[in-house]
Simulated assay, not measured.
Amino acid sequence: MLLIDSPSHNAYFNIASEEYLLKQFPTEDLFLLYVNAPSIIVGKFQNTLAEINLDYVNEHHIKVVRRMSGGGTVYHDLGNLNFSFHTLLGQHDFMDFSIFTEPVLKILNRLGVPAILQGRNDLLVDGKKFSGNAKLARHGKMIQHGTILLNSEMEILGEALKVNPLKYVDKAIKSTRSRVTNLIDYLPKDTTTNDLKNLLTQEIIKNNPGAQTYELTKEDLEGIEKLMKEKYETWDWNFGFSPNYNFKKALKIPAGFIEFHLEVVHGIIEKAKIFGDFFASKPIELFEEQLVGQHHELTSLKRLLQSIDLTAFFGKVTEEEILEGFK
Rank of each mutant, 00 (worst) to 15 (best):
K282M: 01
S281T: 15
G293V: 10
K302C: 14
T311R: 13
E297R: 10
T311I: 14
V292P: 04
K316E: 07
F313S: 00
L286D: 07
H296F: 09
S281D: 08
Q290Y: 04
L301V: 02
F314C: 00
H295K: 13
S307E: 12
L305M: 00
F314T: 08
L305Q: 00
L301Y: 01
L305A: 03
G293E: 02
L291Y: 05
K316P: 08
F313K: 01
Q294I: 03
K302R: 15
S307N: 10
L305I: 02
G315A: 09
E288K: 11
Q290M: 10
F313Y: 10
Q290E: 07
H295Q: 11
S300A: 04
I284Y: 11
R303S: 05
V292N: 03
A312T: 11
L310Q: 03
K316A: 11
L310I: 10
L304D: 03
L304A: 00
E288V: 08
L305E: 01
L305H: 05
S307F: 10
L298P: 07
E297A: 00
I308P: 04
S281C: 15
L298Y: 09
L310Y: 02
L298C: 13
K302F: 13
E289Y: 10
Q306W: 03
K302H: 15
Q294V: 00
L286N: 14
E288P: 02
G315Y: 06
I284F: 04
F314N: 03
I284S: 06
H296D: 05
I284H: 09
K302D: 12
L301E: 01
T311D: 06
Q290P: 09
L304I: 06
R303M: 08
Q294Y: 02
A312K: 12
